[in-house]
Nucleic acid binder design. Sequence first.
DNA 1: TCAAAAGTGTTATCCTTACACCCATGT
DNA 2: ACATGGGTGTAAGGATAACACTTTTGA
Lengths: 355, 355
Amino acid sequence: MAATPMRATPSISTCGDPMSASDSLPPIEIGLSAAIVAVEGDRPEILVVDFAGAPPGLPFGPFDPLRHRTLEIGLRAWVEAQTALTLGYVEQLYTFGDRGRHARRDDRGPHEVSVGYLALTRPPAEAQGAVRGTEALFVPWYDFFPWEDWRGEDGRGQRPALLDEAILPDLRAWAGEKPTSHEAFRGLPRRERLRLCFGEDGMPWDEERALERYELLYEAGLVEEAARDGRDAALKRRAGGSAPPTLGRSMQADNRRILATAISRLRAKLKYRPVVFEMMPESFTLTELQRTVEAISGHHVHKQNFRRLVENSAMVEPTGGSTLKTGGRPAQLFRFRREVLQERPAPGLRLSGRG
Amino acid sequence: MAATPMRATPSISTCGDPMSASDSLPPIEIGLSAAIVAVEGDRPEILVVDFAGAPPGLPFGPFDPLRHRTLEIGLRAWVEAQTALTLGYVEQLYTFGDRGRHARRDDRGPHEVSVGYLALTRPPAEAQGAVRGTEALFVPWYDFFPWEDWRGEDGRGQRPALLDEAILPDLRAWAGEKPTSHEAFRGLPRRERLRLCFGEDGMPWDEERALERYELLYEAGLVEEAARDGRDAALKRRAGGSAPPTLGRSMQADNRRILATAISRLRAKLKYRPVVFEMMPESFTLTELQRTVEAISGHHVHKQNFRRLVENSAMVEPTGGSTLKTGGRPAQLFRFRREVLQERPAPGLRLSGRG
DNA sequence: TCAAAAGTGTTATCCTTACACCCATGT
DNA sequence: ACATGGGTGTAAGGATAACACTTTTGA
């Protein structure tokens, strides 16, 4: 390759000693938050901690560098110590340093930075011994994001009514206003962001943009968290001004944003890594697998193509058994072929055709 | 959609008050590290801070939550204040809590957690005023990862000689040994990891696995950082035991791991988002665009197909001008069509055919 | 006239999408 | 018999990969 060139040399304070500025810095604490996902039938669920009336929160614990070598080890350790849940797949999502978590500037105590994790597990009934206390429970994640479920109550796919009735009218009004100085410098104008995120005129609804959608709603002051974080100005704009925003259940601190991050990431990852199987029991029918994928992605997929896709992908193999529990013709049972991890470079379920 | 069910209730310490455990926790400091990438001709370069003889490091600065609302704002602020670099694209990579950064357990002072960022910029010559001091400079990133450049010195693609001469023999030896207790519980056996990461027998070389490859080399004790972090045992195994490992230049602390993360992420992102253009000048020829993509991905692509792919993608438009500087027939100049961001859901350059 | 690099056209192949149809069970 | 869900086959369309070939400059 070439010899190291001496060329542009922007001046950057080198900070050879990482502690150089530590005296002047306020204390910081790192919170590890886990979005622990399981799918129960056709319902994706998330483990939350209840606050007796107050909005629920994701389970979390502080990171103690003296006890745990890495962040992920820390997360696994206290989750597996305090619950009997077996965390299969664990993945770091994002680190949020926002003040959102502690709303006010004059807060005392350490500043909280939260590292969000995604964990996948099997439905509670399968994870025996998971029940130990009463503070935490699994709740459907679409309680927090009703606009993300496009499967409809009946069978056929169906646009959530909430979108046209409540969300889009308010967002269109917001898009008509002048952007704040904060927004101006970076990114697209409001109208365009709205089109991209919510699939207005011509743009398709992209299920992977769950995080961007939540953040847009937050900026527009349409979720409860925005008010809590002191964005009252944004909220006043709402029609009438009396009715508080009710777009989905809210959560503690920035937890709903972490959950939105988890949903986006999981929906994306489904397509290029065999992560669904972390949420499936040992053996399952192809329809059960399809229901799980649909639950997560939030819309129906084409049955026949899904089946072929799965069978061609070599990700499953028949167990030999079958079940009658589904009603109708008995369904073959399959299991995950772990060997694909060693055969294919990047196995996954790239589904695009809607059902 | 459905009513919230009361079902499984794993007991998790609720930690309603985020400060509950703060007294017993050691102080933590958050370092923001930036992998700032630019492409100069056919060479990808990374901005490093020189330590006069010692291994270079990524520029970094501490996060001060009182001054900056978010981590990214903090990063942008000090980079743009201390250098005159214009950071176009900035993206959070990963947060490392490892002790790797401070090698020894008995360290005094705050524990350092590093949040790695990827930033893209234009070549130094373009970023006028970027030159302010002499501590920082751009160096070719393949100095740190020579095994990642498959383009060859001549023209045709070519496997780096280093792989067969030094890396693979040592890795095969490592794969033949018994795994440590740490490794055993999670993941694949050594032999399989080696196949996947380095494309042994039948598996293709996946350029996106740059991070996994570096981590494998670290675990096998074949990079200098492994020795520094106290993995001497691993190092003793090396044949002869006298010659220190020389697989690429090493960096400060965990910085090479962050750079590996940046390379992996950038190589992946190239394929589904129009990020190349953040590193291109206002107008460019298609061949220049191709050279940039090749520089990053580390291998050649098929010229004709690349051109068609780009032109069909509607990501560029002709400026009308042309240049003679390329030698041979004059080349048309193109510019990035920013409108694609609003037209296509996820534009990118999915190239797979090798050149 | 030749080398070098830009730029065009064509074809075989695979993958995706969509549609139509058959099979096995319970009521 | 028929409803229900499981399971299979096949044809059209589009994207990709690989190939050969033409054009325009400088030396």
